[in-house]
């Protein structure tokens, strides 16, 4: 049941990224590039996605997940240096290539060699992240 629901969620996510044009890097960079020929599409995608999710969060009150367990609570309630540094690094990469993790996976079948190189580099970055995060923690505590 958990696998089936995960498969359905992933399929909906993939269909949404495909239909919205978010696997097209020119549309993502076009939204980030406010000084260029600005493309508003990403704002509609974000707004459209937030609506059903906001309803879903409301529905989590007074019930449990369909497959049991508990709903997630925010894991790190505080704003910390990791959140800021990590988001800035992520944003830099996102702006450079126009791909974030979801679309990078969704476009695997038509993203060509470049898409595969991006995905592999991203996974290498993910493997390096725990070590880099530890170094950042030491820098932050020394500062």
């Amino acid at each position: 049941m958990r696998f089936l629901l995960a498969l359905i969620a992933g399929a909906l996510f993939g269909a949404g990224l495909f239909l919205s044009g978010m696997t097209d890097t020119t549309k993502v960079q076009g939204w980030l590039d406010v000084f260029g020929n600005w493309d508003p599409t990403l704002a509609f995608v974000m707004g459209g996605a937030i609506l059903p999710m906001a309803v879903a969060w409301k529905l989590t009150a007074a019930r449990k997940p369909l497959t049991g367990g508990a709903f997630p609570t925010p894991s790190h309630p505080e704003l910390d240096h990791r959140l800021i540094t990590g988001s800035v690094l992520f944003g830099m990469g996102w702006g450079l290539a126009g791909l974030c993790p979801g679309p990078a996976m969704a476009s695997l079948s038509y993203g060509g060699l470049g898409g595969v190189i991006f995905l592999v580099s991203m996974m290498v970055g993910m493997a390096l992240a725990p070590g880099i995060g530890g170094k950042l923690d030491r820098l932050a505590s020394a500062a």
Binding site: V45, G47, A56
Partner: peptide, 20 residues
């Protein structure tokens, strides 16, 4: 964009309400 966004949010809702 809006239609795709709604599907993305629906996927997130399934994952949250279904699998927590």
């Amino acid at each position: 964009g809006l239609v795709g966004g709604l599907l993305i949010g629906l996927g997130g809702a399934v994952y949250l309400l279904g699998n927590g």
